[in-house]
Design a protein around this nucleic acid. Structure first.
Lengths: 221, 221
DNA sequence: CTTATATGAATGAACG
DNA sequence: CGTTCATTCATATAAG
Protein backbone atom coordinates (compact mmCIF):
# COMPACT_ATOMS: atom_id res chain seq x y z
CA UNK A 1 0.00 0.00 0.00
CA UNK A 2 2.45 2.54 1.14
CA UNK A 3 5.07 1.09 -1.07
CA UNK A 4 2.84 1.34 -4.02
CA UNK A 5 2.12 4.96 -3.35
CA UNK A 6 5.76 5.63 -3.18
CA UNK A 7 6.30 3.79 -6.38
CA UNK A 8 3.76 5.83 -8.20
CA UNK A 9 5.24 8.99 -6.93
CA UNK A 10 8.64 7.86 -7.99
CA UNK A 11 7.47 7.26 -11.48
CA UNK A 12 5.95 10.66 -11.57
CA UNK A 13 9.24 12.14 -10.65
CA UNK A 14 11.14 10.25 -13.23
CA UNK A 15 8.78 10.61 -16.10
CA UNK A 16 5.94 13.00 -15.78
CA UNK A 17 7.27 15.86 -13.78
CA UNK A 18 10.66 17.04 -15.00
CA UNK A 19 10.15 20.29 -13.24
CA UNK A 20 11.19 18.53 -10.11
CA UNK A 21 14.55 17.68 -11.58
CA UNK A 22 17.65 19.73 -11.91
CA UNK A 23 21.06 19.10 -13.34
CA UNK A 24 24.09 20.79 -11.97
CA UNK A 25 27.74 19.97 -12.52
CA UNK A 26 26.77 16.77 -14.21
CA UNK A 27 24.84 15.61 -11.18
CA UNK A 28 21.16 15.08 -11.34
CA UNK A 29 19.08 16.45 -8.54
CA UNK A 30 15.50 15.54 -8.02
CA UNK A 31 12.93 16.10 -5.41
CA UNK A 32 12.82 13.05 -3.25
CA UNK A 33 10.52 11.50 -0.76
CA UNK A 34 10.04 13.25 2.48
CA UNK A 35 11.65 11.85 5.56
CA UNK A 36 8.28 10.61 6.58
CA UNK A 37 7.88 8.65 3.40
CA UNK A 38 11.38 7.37 3.68
CA UNK A 39 10.73 6.23 7.18
CA UNK A 40 7.62 4.50 6.00
CA UNK A 41 9.54 2.69 3.35
CA UNK A 42 12.13 1.59 5.81
CA UNK A 43 9.41 0.34 8.04
CA UNK A 44 8.00 -1.69 5.22
CA UNK A 45 11.25 -3.44 4.70
CA UNK A 46 11.74 -3.89 8.37
CA UNK A 47 8.33 -5.42 8.76
CA UNK A 48 9.04 -7.83 5.99
CA UNK A 49 12.32 -8.69 7.53
CA UNK A 50 10.75 -9.29 10.88
CA UNK A 51 8.04 -11.44 9.45
CA UNK A 52 10.48 -13.41 7.44
CA UNK A 53 12.58 -14.01 10.46
CA UNK A 54 9.65 -15.12 12.51
CA UNK A 55 8.27 -17.31 9.79
CA UNK A 56 11.59 -18.91 9.24
CA UNK A 57 11.79 -19.65 12.91
CA UNK A 58 8.30 -21.05 12.97
CA UNK A 59 9.00 -23.10 9.95
CA UNK A 60 12.14 -24.45 11.46
CA UNK A 61 10.37 -25.40 14.62
CA UNK A 62 7.52 -26.97 12.78
CA UNK A 63 9.61 -28.95 10.41
CA UNK A 64 12.22 -29.91 12.88
CA UNK A 65 10.85 -33.40 12.88
CA UNK A 66 10.50 -33.74 9.20
CA UNK A 67 12.48 -33.11 6.14
CA UNK A 68 14.29 -29.91 6.87
CA UNK A 69 16.08 -31.06 9.93
CA UNK A 70 19.30 -29.20 10.19
CA UNK A 71 19.06 -28.15 6.60
CA UNK A 72 19.91 -31.60 5.48
CA UNK A 73 18.02 -33.15 2.68
CA UNK A 74 14.93 -34.88 3.87
CA UNK A 75 14.77 -37.99 1.84
CA UNK A 76 17.32 -40.66 1.39
CA UNK A 77 19.52 -39.82 4.26
CA UNK A 78 22.34 -41.95 5.52
CA UNK A 79 22.14 -41.80 9.22
CA UNK A 80 25.40 -42.02 11.10
CA UNK A 81 24.01 -44.82 13.16
CA UNK A 82 25.03 -47.43 10.69
CA UNK A 83 28.48 -47.61 12.13
CA UNK A 84 27.25 -49.76 14.97
CA UNK A 85 26.91 -52.91 13.06
CA UNK A 86 28.39 -51.82 9.80
CA UNK A 87 24.94 -52.11 8.38
CA UNK A 88 23.36 -49.84 5.91
CA UNK A 89 19.78 -50.84 5.77
CA UNK A 90 18.44 -47.81 7.49
CA UNK A 91 17.89 -45.74 4.41
CA UNK A 92 14.54 -44.13 4.56
CA UNK A 93 12.36 -45.78 2.00
CA UNK A 94 9.33 -43.61 2.32
CA UNK A 95 9.11 -40.44 0.36
CA UNK A 96 8.02 -37.37 2.25
CA UNK A 97 6.83 -34.40 0.32
CA UNK A 98 8.40 -31.09 0.98
CA UNK A 99 6.19 -28.29 2.12
CA UNK A 100 6.56 -26.72 -1.27
CA UNK A 101 5.77 -29.90 -3.05
CA UNK A 102 2.74 -30.41 -0.90
CA UNK A 103 1.55 -26.96 -1.65
CA UNK A 104 1.85 -27.48 -5.35
CA UNK A 105 0.21 -30.86 -5.17
CA UNK A 106 -2.72 -29.52 -3.24
CA UNK A 107 -3.12 -26.73 -5.70
CA UNK A 108 -3.13 -29.09 -8.63
CA UNK A 109 -5.48 -31.39 -6.84
CA UNK A 110 -7.98 -28.64 -6.31
CA UNK A 111 -7.68 -26.87 -9.59
CA UNK A 112 -9.90 -29.00 -11.70
CA UNK A 113 -8.56 -32.03 -13.45
CA UNK A 114 -9.17 -34.75 -10.97
CA UNK A 115 -7.74 -37.21 -13.42
CA UNK A 116 -3.99 -37.12 -13.25
CA UNK A 117 -3.19 -38.62 -16.58
CA UNK A 118 0.10 -40.24 -17.28
CA UNK A 119 1.37 -37.23 -19.10
CA UNK A 120 0.20 -34.96 -16.37
CA UNK A 121 1.99 -37.05 -13.81
CA UNK A 122 5.20 -36.65 -15.66
CA UNK A 123 4.81 -32.94 -15.85
CA UNK A 124 4.05 -32.63 -12.20
CA UNK A 125 6.92 -34.84 -11.29
CA UNK A 126 9.24 -32.80 -13.38
CA UNK A 127 7.99 -29.67 -11.76
CA UNK A 128 8.22 -31.00 -8.25
CA UNK A 129 11.64 -32.45 -8.77
CA UNK A 130 12.92 -28.91 -8.62
CA UNK A 131 11.84 -28.75 -5.03
CA UNK A 132 13.24 -32.02 -3.83
CA UNK A 133 13.66 -35.63 -4.62
CA UNK A 134 10.55 -37.17 -6.07
CA UNK A 135 9.46 -39.80 -8.56
CA UNK A 136 6.42 -40.31 -10.70
CA UNK A 137 5.30 -43.12 -8.48
CA UNK A 138 5.25 -40.75 -5.57
CA UNK A 139 3.04 -38.35 -7.42
CA UNK A 140 0.78 -41.10 -8.57
CA UNK A 141 0.42 -42.51 -5.10
CA UNK A 142 -0.15 -39.13 -3.65
CA UNK A 143 -3.07 -38.44 -5.93
CA UNK A 144 -4.49 -41.85 -5.33
CA UNK A 145 -4.35 -41.42 -1.63
CA UNK A 146 -5.52 -37.88 -1.69
CA UNK A 147 -8.59 -38.74 -3.62
CA UNK A 148 -9.37 -41.90 -1.77
CA UNK A 149 -9.13 -40.23 1.58
CA UNK A 150 -11.18 -37.25 0.70
CA UNK A 151 -13.84 -39.58 -0.50
CA UNK A 152 -13.64 -41.69 2.60
CA UNK A 153 -14.15 -38.63 4.69
CA UNK A 154 -17.24 -37.89 2.72
CA UNK A 155 -18.63 -41.31 3.39
CA UNK A 156 -17.80 -41.20 7.05
CA UNK A 157 -19.27 -37.79 7.44
CA UNK A 158 -22.40 -38.76 5.62
CA UNK A 159 -22.94 -41.87 7.65
CA UNK A 160 -22.07 -40.43 11.00
CA UNK A 161 -25.02 -38.12 11.21
CA UNK A 162 -26.96 -41.20 12.06
CA UNK A 163 -26.02 -41.83 15.64
CA UNK A 164 -24.31 -38.66 16.60
CA UNK A 165 -26.38 -36.50 18.84
CA UNK A 166 -24.51 -33.31 18.23
CA UNK A 167 -24.70 -31.28 15.11
CA UNK A 168 -21.06 -31.60 14.40
CA UNK A 169 -19.40 -29.65 11.68
CA UNK A 170 -18.01 -32.67 9.95
CA UNK A 171 -19.30 -31.59 6.59
CA UNK A 172 -15.90 -30.33 5.83
CA UNK A 173 -15.17 -33.36 3.74
CA UNK A 174 -11.81 -32.45 2.31
CA UNK A 175 -11.56 -28.75 2.52
CA UNK A 176 -10.16 -28.17 5.99
CA UNK A 177 -6.63 -28.76 5.04
CA UNK A 178 -6.58 -26.71 1.93
CA UNK A 179 -9.31 -24.24 2.40
CA UNK A 180 -7.31 -21.24 3.51
CA UNK A 181 -4.66 -21.51 0.89
CA UNK A 182 -5.88 -19.50 -2.00
CA UNK A 183 -5.70 -16.21 -0.24
CA UNK A 184 -2.31 -15.51 -1.61
CA UNK A 185 -1.21 -18.69 -3.24
CA UNK A 186 -2.74 -17.77 -6.51
CA UNK A 187 0.38 -16.32 -7.91
CA UNK A 188 3.78 -17.36 -6.63
CA UNK A 189 3.46 -20.67 -8.28
CA UNK A 190 6.00 -23.22 -9.18
CA UNK A 191 8.44 -20.87 -10.73
CA UNK A 192 9.25 -19.42 -7.40
CA UNK A 193 11.65 -22.20 -6.67
CA UNK A 194 12.10 -21.79 -3.01
CA UNK A 195 13.81 -24.73 -1.53
CA UNK A 196 16.12 -24.47 1.33
CA UNK A 197 19.06 -23.34 -0.74
CA UNK A 198 17.15 -20.61 -2.47
CA UNK A 199 15.47 -19.35 0.61
CA UNK A 200 18.71 -19.32 2.44
CA UNK A 201 20.49 -17.47 -0.26
CA UNK A 202 17.75 -14.95 -0.52
CA UNK A 203 17.70 -14.44 3.16
CA UNK A 204 21.41 -14.12 3.26
CA UNK A 205 21.21 -11.71 0.43
CA UNK A 206 18.98 -9.62 2.58
CA UNK A 207 20.39 -10.65 5.86
CA UNK A 208 21.27 -8.09 8.43
CA UNK A 209 19.59 -5.25 6.72
CA UNK A 210 16.80 -4.70 9.13
CA UNK A 211 18.33 -4.59 12.54
CA UNK A 212 18.87 -0.93 12.14
CA UNK A 213 15.22 -0.44 12.83
CA UNK A 214 14.91 -2.46 15.95
CA UNK A 215 14.80 0.57 18.13
CA UNK A 216 11.54 1.69 16.67
CA UNK A 217 8.25 0.91 18.27
CA UNK A 218 6.36 -0.11 15.20
CA UNK A 219 6.73 -3.72 16.00
CA UNK A 220 4.04 -3.34 18.57
CA UNK A 221 6.06 -4.02 21.65
CA UNK B 1 23.23 -5.72 2.87
CA UNK B 2 22.24 -3.61 -0.03
CA UNK B 3 19.57 -2.00 1.99
CA UNK B 4 21.99 -1.09 4.65
CA UNK B 5 24.30 0.48 2.13
CA UNK B 6 21.51 2.52 0.81
CA UNK B 7 20.54 3.48 4.28
CA UNK B 8 23.98 4.64 5.08
CA UNK B 9 24.14 6.60 1.93
CA UNK B 10 20.85 8.15 2.74
CA UNK B 11 22.04 9.22 6.10
CA UNK B 12 25.11 10.68 4.53
CA UNK B 13 22.98 12.75 2.28
CA UNK B 14 20.81 13.99 5.04
CA UNK B 15 23.45 14.68 7.58
CA UNK B 16 27.03 14.56 6.50
CA UNK B 17 27.09 15.89 3.00
CA UNK B 18 24.99 18.99 2.64
CA UNK B 19 26.78 19.78 -0.57
CA UNK B 20 24.48 17.32 -2.22
CA UNK B 21 21.48 19.33 -1.19
CA UNK B 22 19.99 22.41 -2.68
CA UNK B 23 17.04 24.54 -1.82
CA UNK B 24 15.17 26.38 -4.51
CA UNK B 25 11.81 28.04 -4.34
CA UNK B 26 11.21 26.48 -1.02
CA UNK B 27 11.73 23.03 -2.37
CA UNK B 28 14.55 20.88 -1.17
CA UNK B 29 16.55 19.02 -3.77
CA UNK B 30 18.98 16.31 -2.92
CA UNK B 31 21.00 13.81 -4.81
CA UNK B 32 19.12 10.59 -4.77
CA UNK B 33 19.74 7.01 -5.51
CA UNK B 34 20.40 6.05 -9.04
CA UNK B 35 17.85 4.09 -10.93
CA UNK B 36 19.97 1.09 -10.38
CA UNK B 37 19.92 1.56 -6.67
CA UNK B 38 16.26 2.18 -6.74
CA UNK B 39 15.69 -0.97 -8.67
CA UNK B 40 17.79 -2.82 -6.17
CA UNK B 41 15.72 -1.51 -3.34
CA UNK B 42 12.56 -2.53 -5.04
CA UNK B 43 13.99 -5.93 -5.54
CA UNK B 44 14.76 -6.18 -1.89
CA UNK B 45 11.20 -5.52 -0.99
CA UNK B 46 9.97 -7.86 -3.66
CA UNK B 47 12.23 -10.60 -2.42
CA UNK B 48 10.93 -10.16 1.07
CA UNK B 49 7.41 -10.19 -0.20
CA UNK B 50 7.99 -13.35 -2.10
CA UNK B 51 9.65 -15.06 0.79
CA UNK B 52 6.94 -14.00 3.16
CA UNK B 53 4.32 -15.31 0.88
CA UNK B 54 6.05 -18.57 0.47
CA UNK B 55 6.72 -18.96 4.13
CA UNK B 56 3.16 -18.18 4.99
CA UNK B 57 2.05 -20.87 2.64
CA UNK B 58 4.47 -23.31 4.08
CA UNK B 59 3.42 -22.44 7.54
CA UNK B 60 -0.21 -22.86 6.71
CA UNK B 61 0.39 -26.22 5.20
CA UNK B 62 2.42 -27.28 8.14
CA UNK B 63 0.03 -26.08 10.77
CA UNK B 64 -3.01 -27.27 8.95
CA UNK B 65 -2.61 -30.57 10.69
CA UNK B 66 -2.54 -29.08 14.11
CA UNK B 67 -5.34 -26.66 13.69
CA UNK B 68 -7.71 -28.49 11.48
CA UNK B 69 -6.87 -32.11 11.44
CA UNK B 70 -8.96 -33.07 14.37
CA UNK B 71 -11.12 -30.13 13.53
CA UNK B 72 -14.28 -31.92 14.20
CA UNK B 73 -13.23 -34.57 16.58
CA UNK B 74 -15.82 -35.46 19.05
CA UNK B 75 -14.04 -35.03 22.30
CA UNK B 76 -13.06 -31.45 22.57
CA UNK B 77 -12.24 -30.50 26.05
CA UNK B 78 -14.51 -27.57 26.47
CA UNK B 79 -13.10 -27.10 29.88
CA UNK B 80 -11.63 -23.66 29.41
CA UNK B 81 -9.08 -23.84 32.10
CA UNK B 82 -6.17 -22.28 30.35
CA UNK B 83 -3.15 -21.14 32.14
CA UNK B 84 -2.85 -17.44 32.53
CA UNK B 85 -2.13 -15.43 29.49
CA UNK B 86 -4.99 -16.46 27.29
CA UNK B 87 -3.33 -19.17 25.33
CA UNK B 88 -4.89 -20.36 22.19
CA UNK B 89 -7.65 -22.84 22.49
CA UNK B 90 -6.32 -25.24 19.91
CA UNK B 91 -8.84 -27.99 20.18
CA UNK B 92 -6.32 -30.49 19.09
CA UNK B 93 -7.13 -32.87 21.88
CA UNK B 94 -6.73 -36.36 20.78
CA UNK B 95 -9.30 -38.90 21.61
CA UNK B 96 -8.68 -41.07 24.61
CA UNK B 97 -10.75 -44.19 25.08
CA UNK B 98 -12.42 -44.63 28.39
CA UNK B 99 -11.87 -47.73 30.40
CA UNK B 100 -15.14 -49.18 29.25
CA UNK B 101 -14.46 -48.41 25.67
CA UNK B 102 -11.04 -49.91 25.89
CA UNK B 103 -12.45 -53.05 27.40
CA UNK B 104 -14.95 -53.43 24.63
CA UNK B 105 -12.38 -52.70 22.00
CA UNK B 106 -9.98 -55.23 23.38
CA UNK B 107 -12.72 -57.80 23.58
CA UNK B 108 -13.72 -57.27 19.99
CA UNK B 109 -10.13 -57.29 18.92
CA UNK B 110 -9.52 -60.66 20.49
CA UNK B 111 -12.73 -62.32 19.56
CA UNK B 112 -12.08 -63.12 15.97
CA UNK B 113 -12.48 -60.97 12.93
CA UNK B 114 -9.25 -59.19 12.58
CA UNK B 115 -10.69 -57.22 9.76
CA UNK B 116 -13.17 -54.75 11.08
CA UNK B 117 -15.20 -53.86 8.06
CA UNK B 118 -16.73 -50.48 7.70
CA UNK B 119 -20.07 -51.76 8.73
CA UNK B 120 -18.54 -53.30 11.79
CA UNK B 121 -16.86 -50.05 12.55
CA UNK B 122 -20.16 -48.33 12.56
CA UNK B 123 -21.66 -50.78 14.95
CA UNK B 124 -18.76 -50.59 17.31
CA UNK B 125 -18.78 -46.87 17.20
CA UNK B 126 -22.43 -46.78 17.92
CA UNK B 127 -21.97 -49.06 20.83
CA UNK B 128 -19.03 -47.22 22.25
CA UNK B 129 -20.61 -43.86 21.86
CA UNK B 130 -22.82 -44.79 24.77
CA UNK B 131 -19.78 -44.87 26.99
CA UNK B 132 -18.22 -41.68 25.89
CA UNK B 133 -17.59 -39.49 22.93
CA UNK B 134 -16.11 -41.34 19.99
CA UNK B 135 -16.13 -41.36 16.25
CA UNK B 136 -15.74 -43.99 13.60
CA UNK B 137 -12.35 -42.67 12.76
CA UNK B 138 -11.27 -43.28 16.31
CA UNK B 139 -12.36 -46.86 16.15
CA UNK B 140 -10.76 -47.34 12.81
CA UNK B 141 -7.49 -45.91 14.00
CA UNK B 142 -7.60 -47.90 17.15
CA UNK B 143 -7.87 -51.16 15.31
CA UNK B 144 -5.22 -50.18 12.87
CA UNK B 145 -2.82 -49.32 15.62
CA UNK B 146 -3.74 -52.26 17.74
CA UNK B 147 -3.06 -54.66 14.97
CA UNK B 148 0.10 -53.04 13.77
CA UNK B 149 1.58 -52.88 17.22
CA UNK B 150 0.76 -56.38 18.23
CA UNK B 151 2.33 -57.54 15.04
CA UNK B 152 5.40 -55.50 15.64
CA UNK B 153 5.78 -57.01 19.04
CA UNK B 154 5.78 -60.43 17.54
CA UNK B 155 8.39 -59.49 15.02
CA UNK B 156 10.60 -57.93 17.63
CA UNK B 157 10.23 -60.89 19.92
CA UNK B 158 11.03 -63.28 17.14
CA UNK B 159 14.06 -61.40 15.97
CA UNK B 160 15.48 -60.80 19.40
CA UNK B 161 15.45 -64.49 20.07
CA UNK B 162 17.36 -65.63 17.09
CA UNK B 163 20.10 -63.23 16.25
CA UNK B 164 23.28 -62.55 18.05
CA UNK B 165 25.28 -59.38 17.82
CA UNK B 166 27.97 -60.85 15.64
CA UNK B 167 26.15 -62.80 13.00
CA UNK B 168 24.41 -59.75 11.66
CA UNK B 169 21.85 -61.35 9.51
CA UNK B 170 19.53 -58.95 7.80
CA UNK B 171 17.25 -58.17 10.64
CA UNK B 172 14.26 -57.04 8.72
CA UNK B 173 14.29 -53.32 8.73
CA UNK B 174 16.55 -52.06 11.42
CA UNK B 175 15.66 -53.16 14.89
CA UNK B 176 13.04 -50.76 16.17
CA UNK B 177 13.83 -51.57 19.73
CA UNK B 178 17.20 -49.87 19.88
CA UNK B 179 16.83 -46.83 17.77
CA UNK B 180 17.85 -43.65 19.54
CA UNK B 181 16.09 -41.28 17.25
CA UNK B 182 15.00 -38.68 19.71
CA UNK B 183 17.82 -36.36 18.97
CA UNK B 184 15.59 -33.64 17.72
CA UNK B 185 12.19 -34.53 19.04
CA UNK B 186 12.85 -32.90 22.33
CA UNK B 187 13.02 -29.24 21.62
CA UNK B 188 10.54 -27.21 19.63
CA UNK B 189 7.94 -27.73 22.26
CA UNK B 190 6.70 -24.81 24.24
CA UNK B 191 9.14 -22.18 23.13
CA UNK B 192 7.14 -21.44 20.04
CA UNK B 193 5.79 -18.27 21.48
CA UNK B 194 4.73 -16.39 18.43
CA UNK B 195 1.39 -17.40 17.13
CA UNK B 196 -0.87 -16.15 14.42
CA UNK B 197 -2.13 -12.83 15.79
CA UNK B 198 1.01 -10.81 15.44
CA UNK B 199 1.98 -12.26 12.13
CA UNK B 200 -1.43 -11.76 10.72
CA UNK B 201 -1.66 -8.14 11.67
CA UNK B 202 1.71 -7.45 10.21
CA UNK B 203 0.88 -9.20 7.02
CA UNK B 204 -2.31 -7.29 6.69
CA UNK B 205 -0.37 -4.16 7.19
CA UNK B 206 1.72 -5.01 4.20
CA UNK B 207 -0.88 -6.72 2.13
CA UNK B 208 -0.85 -6.17 -1.57
CA UNK B 209 2.23 -4.09 -1.71
CA UNK B 210 4.48 -6.28 -3.72
CA UNK B 211 2.57 -7.34 -6.76
CA UNK B 212 3.83 -4.37 -8.60
CA UNK B 213 7.11 -6.14 -9.10
CA UNK B 214 5.88 -9.35 -10.54
CA UNK B 215 6.88 -8.46 -14.03
CA UNK B 216 10.55 -8.45 -13.23
CA UNK B 217 12.77 -11.37 -13.96
CA UNK B 218 14.83 -11.29 -10.82
CA UNK B 219 13.03 -14.26 -9.44
CA UNK B 220 15.28 -16.48 -11.41
CA UNK B 221 13.29 -17.26 -14.45
C1' DC C 1 11.53 -28.98 34.08
C1' DT C 2 13.46 -32.52 31.14
C1' DT C 3 13.36 -37.10 29.27
C1' DA C 4 11.12 -41.44 28.08
C1' DT C 5 7.22 -44.01 26.80
C1' DA C 6 2.39 -45.01 25.19
C1' DT C 7 -0.69 -44.22 21.78
C1' DG C 8 -4.00 -41.52 18.65
C1' DA C 9 -3.56 -39.85 14.17
C1' DA C 10 -1.55 -39.06 9.47
C1' DT C 11 0.19 -40.88 5.33
C1' DG C 12 3.20 -43.15 1.69
C1' DA C 13 3.06 -47.43 -0.38
C1' DA C 14 1.12 -51.80 -1.55
C1' DC C 15 -2.49 -55.11 -2.35
C1' DG C 16 -6.58 -57.16 -4.97
C1' DC D 1 -10.15 -47.49 -7.20
C1' DG D 2 -11.05 -48.90 -2.60
C1' DT D 3 -8.84 -51.07 1.25
C1' DT D 4 -5.05 -52.40 4.10
C1' DC D 5 -0.34 -52.33 5.82
C1' DA D 6 3.80 -50.19 7.66
C1' DT D 7 5.99 -46.28 9.22
C1' DT D 8 6.13 -41.91 11.12
C1' DC D 9 4.43 -37.78 13.60
C1' DA D 10 2.71 -35.62 17.62
C1' DT D 11 0.92 -35.44 22.12
C1' DA D 12 -0.57 -37.02 26.63
C1' DT D 13 1.24 -39.09 30.49
C1' DA D 14 4.70 -41.05 33.42
C1' DA D 15 9.23 -41.19 35.24
C1' DG D 16 13.69 -39.04 36.64
Amino acid sequence: MMIMEWDQQQQQQQESQPQNQKEENGVMYVKVMTDEQLETLRKQIAVYASICEQLVEMHKNLTAHQDLTGGRLGNLYCDPLMTTGGHKISARQRWTPTAVQLQILERIFHEGTGTPSKQKIKEITSELSQHGQISETNVYNWFQNRRARSKRKQVVAASSNNNAAESEVETEVESPKTKPENLLASQAEQDVCFQNPEISSQLNYLGGSYHIYDQHAWQGE
